[in-house]
């Protein structure tokens, strides 16, 4: 009784382990894969990786929490990454944050109750000339203001 998620992760590990000298080395790429499959590094994801690499669950958890960019808690379907560094802040990203909070009850580091968005504050993305700027998933948006931010976000359901 193996579900698809487990199978994807198992196949990935079977494939990847040939590229490394030791099976421990497949843990990091497998964590990326599991993030894609489960949406975050869930306890089930860690168990799957542990089952097929033989590395202990605790150790995998240690690895996953060491790196800041693994999603160590459940994430929404879309990830908003908003810059609040100096220039963006001056250009009004703070007020955008409070708007997001008003409209979606979205706090930095949090997730909407319907699981649609997660919000993360990010460091400078080099768009100071067209600040404020944000990333939604892998898409880049700049010159944000109180109106267009919702037009953009409406595209992500």
């Amino acid at each position: 009784m193996e579900n698809n998620n487990v199978k994807t992760i198992r196949d990935f590990i079977e494939r990847e382990k040939k590229s490394y000298a030791s099976i421990e080395s497949t843990v990091i790429p497998a964590l990326h894969e599991a993030e894609g499959v489960y949406g975050w590094i869930s306890p089930e994801a860690i168990e799957d990786i542990s089952n097929y690499t033989g590395v202990s669950k605790a150790k995998i958890k240690g690895t996953a929490t060491f790196y800041a960019m693994y999603k160590n808690k459940p994430m929404g379907r879309h990830l908003i990454q908003l810059c609040t560094n100096v220039v963006c802040m001056v250009m009004g990203s703070e007020s955008l944050l409070s708007l997001l909070n008003e409209r979606y009850e979205l706090e930095p580091g949090g997730m909407t109750s319907d699981g649609r968005f997660s919000l993360v504050i990010m460091e400078c993305i080099g768009a100071c000339g067209t600040a404020p700027a944000m990333l939604v998933d892998a898409d880049y948006y700049d010159n944000l203001n109180e109106k267009n931010i919702f037009e953009i976000l409406d595209k992500y359901q």
Partner: peptide, 12 residues
């Protein structure tokens, strides 16, 4: 293999 250091730096 029951326990591990989680997090990093100050937060570990």
């Amino acid at each position: 293999f029951a326990i591990t250091v989680t997090g990093r730096g100050n937060h570990s």
